[in-house]
Design a protein around this nucleic acid. Structure first.
Length: 385
DNA sequence: TCTGGGGTCCTAGGACCC
DNA sequence: TCTGGGGTCCTAGGACCC
């Protein structure tokens, strides 16, 4: 019988802070920004903070209103990544078949591990105990015969619990849930459920596939039909490399100065180019994103015959897109850029580039290596200093 | 209260070719 | 002279997730 565990670290960033700073334990910790930071949101709130109504994606200003005595922190990603690797390492001791889906959660295929670890529920217990003893963190787990149901089950077990859906019980489990438990149906879908009067998954269960598809579109209709029957969503079943790399920047105040926006674009180019070099991938498609003062967002992209080769090349392509798209006189809240449709770089080094480009590519690679070895050297374009 | 940053996938329409 | 239909590639926008 197939068996999957979905394991999710409880209030991850906030828990790491409470672990490293004992004086924070038992107190409302809010990671994401400190009061006064403009245009920032909560990444993680500890369970103590959630009692005041603070939750992820909430503006820091609002969180401060709800919980003025909370401990506000900007966050230390490096430390969280380190802790995440520790936990994932422990997961790996229970099965080599691990699918990490974000910094703090993973699916474990534990099919056929009974002889080593006992029944699935015992394995889940051992997993939770081991993680707690070795890292000080608690995890919530869900057990089911497929990943989708396991994910929903772990949500029901938070914090620090274990929720088991017995084999054969997937469908009745799903049908008993309210529609807001459907993973993959966000605000827009929830509003539509409300409009049509769908309160529980059982309401959706009773609707024929054809009707679901005509109301919600083919892909999402198919998805809903299967989800409320507790059938596996296939989207995690195959592993694929990264498809895009992107970076963006929100200005503290609306920006009207085009030169300053271009400088921000250059900074983003710097980030993207080094990440591209590290990944050994290449891209022919460059995209630009502009968010205006009223939060309306426009994107532009362009695919060229040749992959992006240097930072200047990327910068030129993005500036061209920017000037084509930008509505003059409007305030810019956010500027972003990305490299899409990534492909392996091996095939196209050398003769594709002009001699002059070849020199620049080598120079950028050297600078990147130096910056990695000596972070304090920080070699960069004069405009970015 | 005024809304981050990094991703994935889907849709619909247009261009172009056969 | 008018016109079908399938396939592929590309673009813009949007929903959703953590």
């Amino acid at each position: 019988m197939p068996y999957f565990i979905h394991a999710d670290i409880d209030a991850f960033y906030a828990s790491v802070e409470q672990l490293d700073n004992p004086e924070y334990r038992g107190k409302p910790v809010i990671v994401g920004g400190i009061p006064g930071d403009r245009r920032t949101v909560v990444s993680t709130a500890s369970y103590e903070a959630r009692r005041y109504g603070v939750h992820s994606a909430m503006p820091i200003a609002r969180a401060y209103e709800l919980c003025p005595h909370g401990i506000f922190l900007r966050g230390r990603m490096k430390r969280y990544q380190e802790k995440s690797r520790e936990v994932m390492g422990i997961f790996m001791e229970f099965t080599p078949d691990l699918r990490q889906i974000s910094i703090d959660e993973a699916f474990l295929d534990i099919t056929g591990t009974e002889r080593i670890f006992g029944p699935p529920s015992e394995l889940a217990d051992k997993l939770k105990t081991t993680v707690r003893e070795r890292t000080g963190l608690t995890v919530s787990t869900g057990l089911a015969s497929n990943k989708y149901v396991a994910k929903i089950a772990s949500g029901m077990s938070k914090p620090d619990g274990c929720f088991i859906v017995e084999n054969g019980g997937e469908e009745s489990f799903m049908r008993s849930l309210s529609v807001d438990k459907i993973w993959g149906a966000g605000n827009k879908a929830q509003a539509k459920f409300k409009k049509y009067g769908y309160k529980t998954c059982d309401d959706i269960y009773k609707i024929p596939l054809q009707r679901l598809c005509s109301v919600f579109g083919k892909a999402f209709g198919d998805f809903l039909y299967r989800a409320v029957r507790g059938e596996a969503a296939s989207s995690f079943d195959y592993i694929r490399g990264a498809r895009s790399i992107s970076a963006e920047h929100t200005f503290g105040f609306d920006m009207y100065d085009q030169f300053a926006v271009e400088t921000a674009i250059m900074k983003i180019c710097n980030t993207l180019m080094y990440r591209l070099l590290d990944s050994r991938l290449e891209s022919r498609t460059v995209s630009l994103k502009i968010r205006y003062e009223d939060f309306s967002t426009e994107t532009a992209r362009e695919t060229s015959e040749h992959p992006v080769c240097t930072m200047n090349d990327l910068f030129d392509r993005l500036c061209a897109l920017f000037h084509r798209k930008y509505k003059r006189g409007r305030g810019i809240r956010l500027i972003g850029a990305g490299l899409m449709n990534l492909e392996n770089a091996e095939c196209s080094s050398g003769e594709l580039f002009e001699f002059e480009d070849e020199r620049k590519i080598r120079l950028e690679k050297c600078i990147h290596e130096i910056n990695k070895k000596f972070p304090r050297a920080a070699i960069k374009k004069a405009r970015l200093i």
